[in-house]
Design a protein around this nucleic acid. Sequence first.
RNA 1: GCCAGUGUAGCUCAGUUGGCCAGAGCAGCUGAUUUGUAAUCAGCUGGUCGGGGGUUCGAAUCCCUCCACUGGCUCCA
Length: 649
Amino acid sequence: MEELINITFPDGAVRQYQKGSSAIDIAKKISEGLARKVLAADVNGVTWDATRPINNDTSIKFLTWDDINGKSTFWHSSAHLMAEAIQSMFPGVKFWVGPPLENGFYYDVDLGENVIAEEDLKKLEIKMTELARQNNNYVRKEISKKDAVQYFADKGDEYKLDLLGGLNDGEITLYSQGSFTDLCRGPHIPATGIIKAVKLTAIAGAYWKGNENNKMLTRIYGVTFPTQKELDEYLVLLEEAKKRDHRKLGKELELFTFSEKVGMGLPLWLPNGTMLRERLQQFLQKAQTEAGYLPVITPHIGHKNLYVTSGHFEKYGKDSFQPIKTPQEGEEFFLKPMNCPHHCEIYKSSPRSYKDLPLRFSEFGTVYRYEQHGELHGLTRVRGFTQDDAHLFCMPSQVKDEFKKVIDLVFYVLKSLGFTDYTAQISLRDKIDRSKYIGSDENWEVSEKAIIEASAEKGLKTVIEYGEAAFYGPKLDFMLRDAIGRKWQLGTIQVDYNLPERFELTYIGEDNARHTPVMIHRAPFGSLERFVALLIEHCAGKFPLWLTPVQVKILPISEKFLPYAENVLNALKIADIRAVIDDRNEKIGKKIRDTELAKIPYMLVIGEKEVQNENIAIRRQGKGDLGTKSMAEFIAMVNEEVENKRAFE
RNA sequence: GCCAGUGUAGCUCAGUUGGCCAGAGCAGCUGAUUUGUAAUCAGCUGGUCGGGGGUUCGAAUCCCUCCACUGGCUCCA
């Protein structure tokens, strides 16, 4: 007699199926097409193998390639497939872990004496495709801890034994496909044949358990897809990302450079880059002035004692540049790694009343940190950079309001720069372990609540992460997606109880008693270097008109029209439009081509006709000839575009 | 710092079974041309082949070492 179970679908429908049916069995009853797409199933909120029998009443959701969990299952299984290929190529290697990532997967392998090079990846890909074609099933097997230990001890696999050490009997499973068996929680896709396209992307070293004192394993990164077409699209996206690389564009557009002689990780801003950066700075400065910020300037070095007081010396001393010594015995200065200690001293320079608060000190402060060689990367990871920093000193009761104002400012910045796709993460204290945090429980609760409420009231999409707060306070970080969907970590707003205490900052309250203010760090851009890098990649070097270094290039057809070109240039200068003349002895086609490649938004072609008609022929970068207009019309057009901060396209 | 890879002119790149004075295009300079919407022609300049050491009759090419750059390095089965 058949036993039946009740299965609840996402739409609320409940249907009965034979006990022991798998998600695939159930999907097949609905349609063969669906069954082919099912990679895994969400069973009562847990991701399961699509082939695993279901014995109880449950809710179920089929997971396909379109679900994040479907993708990760697919990539996790792909990691196993890659492991099988590696094993066949290098028998006897040992495996650590092979998790899925946001965009693919990796596996950490101890290759023993073997060395794998980039050209081996091709061979591995071919092997993986071969194994995938065998269409072997991924088979789940529950095993007792004792048997599992026995199994891996026999194999001499210390890595899996290490993992087993942390697992309880009764929750241990093995997964096999083809000739490969792995200790694995699963779940996995039904069979290897679903993996149709394979690309191994990188090979890297990774310390075992991420600890640099441990042995270095070889990490192989890859990505797989259910169709070749999707892989091709992915590769096109990678190409697109390459074209947008800020290091490449920075060189081509003459924005910045690096010099070995100056020192690595120390960017040199060229005139074009400087104009862009200063424009961003002016833009934010104006917004901040309107929001009640007060500008301050502090020096590039500070006495060692300053950083001892702030705690930065203890925490970051070894990651700093070596101290600067003076003829004075025992005196040491450090390049400033942060602006906050200086700002705290500015706060202290005068007695403060509750009537002065909130007090908002802002500074585009350049800081220096010693990043390890391998960490350096273009403008995004450097040793000297400028933060769009500000420190808000306020009463605990003002935290929420200040957060709302900062969120407004960030919204304004993002909108002005054409970023529409962003989220935020609220980082709070660990729910249980509170020993590592400084500051009173009461203050923490007030601030955490303030951040959550401020974000909600501003309609910000947020994710709350417990245990991610800094030891000195909770924070709100902005994450945004650029034009081709890549995620960037942007500015941050952080509450800090630590520094006001360390610097013994106070204000006189309404009650005529001394109180400690709360400090809020905030940087909408994060750093100008990083933000410019993001902006370059977001708009592929085609900056919006209001930011671009050169807005207009005047292209005379021949030297004969230079005088008229000068007139045009003067008119533009008076109108505050950034323009230059291409007075080279070149043909117009050449001038246009060079200007197009330099991504300068507007070209004004000037020849006999324009001189005669007292107008200009306008050409837009990437769009071609726009016809003729009078100077007044053109200036109005440019001004409108600048005022509305239009994105380039 | 560690793993893997790369390093030839300002830029993009040829050249490696070790062998004439190391090449091209672009950029730059000089001259000719005075030009109508993505490259006018000609000539010239420019490199201790990342630095140092070694092997060799001979090294851009092979070995060692240092430097810089690129992709990674706490997403625990």
